[in-house]
Simulated assay, not measured.
Amino acid sequence: MLGIIGIVLVFVMVFGGYVLAGGKMAIIIKALPFELMMIGGAAVGAFLISNEGSVVKHAIRDMSKVFKGPKWKPEDYRDLLCLLFELIRLARSSPVALEEHVENPEESAIFGKYPKIAADANSVELICDTLRSVSMNYDDPHQVEEVLDKRLERMQAHALHPSHALGSVADALPALGIVAAVLGVIKTMASIDQPPEVLGKMIGGALVGTFLGVFLSYAFVAPFAAKMKATIDDDFHFYQLIREVLVANLHNHSTNICIEVGRQNTPSHFRPTFVDLEDALKSVKQAS
């Protein structure tokens, strides 16, 4: 909702202010399709040249984050803590019974209770790989923590690639606007024998290119890239929570302490309250 409000506000304030100041929209409207074709087409072409197909698809998909916000909501963090609680408790009471859940998470009754988490490959792989390594006696907390940190760094760098690519387009748009403006000046110079009122409109049309490049860059593409990055960073706290709980487990803290470590390391706007989490864990205990 805030994204839509922001877009409407940008158009109303910029063009509304221009019209109220006595500006004529006719020149902008006449030049806009051609300038947009040159600037927008060049920007899209440069984006395709500099990125792989997977990044392009990822960037298009991530643009929805501007309007949808983070994938993981506060209730998902609560569910994740409940899932980890069940898995850790099972690992300590019956390591053999844990294997079927780790080796076949898609058929696991425990993962099945949390379909949104089970559908996220990164979450499932991170949990299962770490618990599997413990069952293989690779249980040095410091080594596992280092492995998890490197893995999370790679995941985050991959997730942020589309926002960085879109940021590069934002940086290029003002220059592409100048390119379009220069072409407009060339066109104007070729008609130097025309009356001043005709030349004035042609120069005005050329300057639309400079305006459009800067406008698209700083009012749309750069904010989109920044919002994508902020949303991805927010979503990444979900995976950091998995790391915190599983590393605490390797330090042989009690199961409840491991979960509380994860809860307290969750950002405040996603963190379930102590009471809410306790109620959820009681339900888990009663159901098992």
Results as ranks from 00 to 15, higher is better:
residue 202 M to E: 14
residue 264 Q to M: 12
residue 179 V to S: 01
residue 57 K to V: 05
residue 192 I to R: 07
residue 198 V to A: 15
residue 74 P to Q: 01
residue 204 G to A: 03
residue 106 E to L: 09
residue 225 A to S: 14
residue 278 E to N: 14
residue 71 K to Y: 04
residue 278 E to A: 13
residue 209 G to C: 15
residue 244 E to S: 11
residue 261 V to Q: 11
residue 169 V to H: 03
residue 95 P to R: 05
residue 151 R to V: 04
residue 279 D to C: 01
residue 249 N to E: 15
residue 117 I to P: 07
residue 84 L to C: 11
residue 127 I to T: 02
residue 128 C to G: 02
residue 3 G to R: 00
residue 159 A to C: 02
residue 135 S to K: 05
residue 84 L to I: 06
residue 88 I to N: 12
residue 126 L to N: 06
residue 87 L to N: 02
residue 177 G to P: 05
residue 105 P to A: 00
residue 88 I to C: 07
residue 93 S to T: 14
residue 232 I to N: 03
residue 174 P to G: 09
residue 236 F to W: 04
residue 275 V to D: 14
residue 94 S to A: 14
residue 208 V to E: 09
residue 253 H to W: 10
residue 249 N to Q: 15
residue 221 V to D: 01
residue 69 G to D: 05
residue 12 V to T: 09
residue 248 A to C: 09
residue 2 L to H: 11
residue 85 F to G: 04
residue 177 G to N: 07
residue 67 F to L: 12
residue 260 E to I: 05
residue 72 W to Y: 14
residue 253 H to S: 07
residue 282 K to L: 15
residue 100 E to G: 03
residue 237 H to C: 03
residue 221 V to F: 00
residue 24 K to P: 02
residue 286 Q to A: 15
residue 20 L to Q: 12
residue 32 L to M: 13
residue 277 L to C: 09
residue 63 M to S: 06
residue 34 F to R: 05
residue 24 K to N: 13
residue 182 V to L: 14
